[in-house]
């Protein structure tokens, strides 16, 4: 015996399916809309912000420069005038205003080198760091304290007091050696004169090819 009710319902199966269809389609219209978050998710940005890898200290930087580590790019985000006055050896100038210039963006949007951003302190560099992170650029670091800190620690390291621990003296001698490398003449320490660093041509960057979302020829 066939269930009569079932038969009755089944005879309406197409209208029922059609109704489900319309409800689903209508649901899309009625669902509340929200703006989609573009770029990196806020949580991920927070994780990156608090990561110790975000900052690089001046001592680390001095090490990198002296060892001529080829895997780093130094990006000066100050304006051109300041850049011409003084900058780190081999630095590239990308003023904050022109951060997304097409010719310059290849220094930032790549995954072969570590990028160190710096400005006078770390304020502008931090802003550049956040902007670039939003665009999912990789391997970005900020020079902690910027060029001021660089000057105070490496170029003109404070002489440790006699009652300070031994490691401070070690640090001082390391910094002193570093500053000599960067052209500070000792023992005329009072002079504090910094030779203009030799600017060599910035290294050749292989820009990351923007990952095409699809092969160009899709479909048929």
């Amino acid at each position: 015996m066939i269930n009569r009710n079932l038969v009755k319902v089944l005879s309406f199966r197409y209208p029922i399916i059609a109704a489900i269809f319309l409800i689903l389609a209508g649901g899309l219209v009625l669902l509340p809309k929200y703006e989609k978050q573009k770029g990196i998710a806020p949580q991920e940005l927070l994780n990156k912000s608090t990561s110790p890898e975000r900052y690089i200290s001046t001592d680390q930087l001095a090490d990198i420069i002296i060892n001529q580590d080829p895997s780093y790019i130094f990006v000066d985000v100050r304006d051109e005038e300041s850049f011409n006055k003084y900058t780190l050896p081999n630095a590239v100038n990308i003023p904050l205003k022109q951060l997304f210039d097409e010719d310059l963006v290849m220094y930032l949007n790549q995954d072969q080198f570590d990028v160190v951003l710096f400005s006078n302190d770390n304020f502008y560099a931090d802003q550049a760091w956040i902007l670039c992170n939003r665009l999912k650029y990789k391997n970005l670091h900020v020079l902690k304290g910027g060029l001021n800190e660089w000057y105070n620690t490496i170029i003109n390291p404070p002489f440790p007091n006699e009652n300070m621990p031994a490691q401070d003296f070690e640090l001082f001698s390391a910094r002193k050696a570093a500053s000599m490398y960067f052209g500070v003449a000792y023992p005329e320490q009072a002079k504090k004169e910094v030779k203009a660093p030799i600017k060599t041509a910035p290294k050749k960057i292989v820009p990351v090819k923007k990952k095409k979302k699809m092969p160009v020829e899709g479909g048929c």
Partner: peptide
């Protein structure tokens, strides 16, 4: 991220 196709294979 792309659709189906058929004539592309013949091409």
């Amino acid at each position: 991220g792309r659709g189906l196709g058929a004539s592309g294979a013949m091409k």
